[in-house]
Design a protein around this nucleic acid. Structure first.
Lengths: 303, 303
DNA sequence: GTTTCTCCATACCTTTTCTGCATGAAGACA
DNA sequence: TGTCTTCATGCAGAAAAGGTATGGAGAAAC
């Protein structure tokens, strides 16, 4: 059974007349007769009763006509969906985020993407950096978000934004009342820091800043993620250096303070990683939204 | 886009290799290549990335493959359903019953038909006799049930069963306590009867029985249907002659009694009517069940 | 009752489309 | 570099679909 035969059948079923149906189909009547006969023979079912008045549907024919309409509707949809998918406007995009990366920037970006491409289903996976790299290579995800990725040949990373460090301090700490905080002063306060296993680059960055400022920080507790870190600050474990976007995380007893003399390079980069040479249309769409988003964010910061 | 191309596409999509797919499809590789190209061109969408390892689905291709599977499943179902419909095992059968005909016999028959042909959807319509005739001629129904139809050239009627008359009497009436009731005795009791507009044949039959017995009945009330008639008996309006199947209608205060000397022809026929020469498979199926049903009912009565 | 008209079916030929064989081009792998 | 695998292309043959002419059967009109 072929779609042409089915189309012919449906037209005859609706016209109840071979001649008119043939005209509508832009063919002559005899081949149409043959195609209908063939369809009946293929199915082993009589679809029409031939009367002097025309072609009258049998019960089986009536049912097939309904089914045929469904089939054509599905075929039509399939064609349209395929075309939308080829334009990166329909489909499924698997994205990985790291534990605390879901704060601030990424949700706003994803919301923006959802507005731009409402038919794309975004599936979020929580993965740490190494897991993301593996998942990208295995095509389990298309995009990963993380911080400070070392360059890799098969993966391309693109900077999403660069945030200066902020200090999370307990509201009862003397630092909370100071109008200006210098980095050097942190030497006098215990510090909560990520464990070097979970965020080696971040730890290295903080440690090297401290060394440059001439002190070794007193680490009271190592934590695996920002939320835990900030909640320890709330409990009075010490101060904690976090990225600016983490300041959207407001816990009772915690305030965020800028450090006045932070060096230029004391920043945390949020990057977006994908397979080099991935020409997927969904990725292209996503990167387009990402670049628009960056442009608008920069304008926002300048203002 | 025709089903052949779609089948080819799906096979290639599943094999991810033109050569293997061609083997499975029992064609050689070059035509398959061309068909895939044509499909891509028709849709204006690249469905595969050609790699030295084989054919790799694009996002659009992945989506089309899913849709294609749905389409084939629907086509398969359509074919099977059509064949079942041609055997009278699937479809919709519109049946008309008269007001009180839904009592006893017809429900049992319909239940039996539902067991024999579970995939046939029976739609019941309540219509009086003349309405049924019109509906049959307009093909709005396929079968009608009614009582005592006069012969018509374009409609065939088949006897379903023949029921003797029963007398519905109020439990307080002297007749209720009598062991034997003779027809002649009805002359002394007021009677509830159908109006001659709703059941002319039934009224004629009762009146002629009374005349033959030598009396004219005192009609206290004319009613349109059995249920009303029997409820008037319950209220003490008089006695009412009903068909045996109506006795399944039990109302408080009403008992049913046989009449000992009822003539042979004092019967009510339940007939089934359909268009003469209707060769619909559903009707054939229905009549087959009906005849089996009649056979079993007769055996039941003999026992 | 015959004619005419309207349908669908069949015969025969033409045209299009698909298929197979042979072969080419390009990247992977040893 | 040679070989292997994979997809792409040219050309001829086969199959399927389409067109024209015509037949046959029933309904409607005269």
């Amino acid at each position: 059974m072929d779609l042409r035969k089915l189309r012919y059948f449906l037209t005859v079923a609706e016209e109840r007349n071979l001649g008119r149906a043939a005209t509508l189909l832009h063919i002559s009547q005899p081949p149409l007769t043959r195609q209908i006969h063939q369809l009946e023979q293929e199915l082993g079912v009589q679809l029409f009763n031939r009367t002097p008045k025309g072609m009258e549907l049998t019960e089986a024919g009536t049912l097939l006509a309904q089914e045929a309409r469904n089939i054509f509707s599905l075929v039509q949809q399939a064609s349209e969906k395929t075309q939308r998918a080829s334009q990166g406007r329909l489909g499924r995009l698997d994205i990985a985020v790291f534990g605390s990366g879901v704060l601030d920037t990424i949700p706003r970006l994803l919301l923006r993407f959802k507005q731009d491409y409402p038919e794309v289903k975004v599936v979020l996976h929580t993965m740490e950096k190494e897991e993301q790299i593996q998942a990208l290579r295995q095509h389990r995800i298309t995009v990963g978000f993380n911080r400070m990725l070392k360059p890799l040949p098969d993966l391309t990373s693109e900077l999403v934004n660069r945030e200066r460090l902020l200090l999370a301090v307990n509201e009862n700490s003397p630092l909370a009342t100071q109008s200006v905080i210098k980095f050097r002063e942190l030497a006098d306060y215990p510090m909560v820091l990520f464990s070097s296993s979970s965020r080696p680059n971040f730890v290295d960055k903080v440690m090297s800043l401290c060394y440059a400022a001439g002190f070794t920080p007193e680490i009271t507790q190592e934590v695996g993620d920002v939320v835990t870190g900030v909640s320890l600050v709330a409990s009075g474990f010490g101060v904690c250096l976090v990225s600016k976007s983490a300041s959207s995380l407001s816990l009772p007893g915690v305030v965020y303070r800028e450090i006045s003399d932070l060096p230029e390079n004391a920043t945390i980069d949020l990057s977006c990683v994908f397979r080099s040479g991935d020409d997927s249309r969904l990725l292209t769409s996503f990167l387009e939204t990402l670049r628009n988003f960056k442009r608008e964010e920069m304008i926002g910061e300048v203002e």
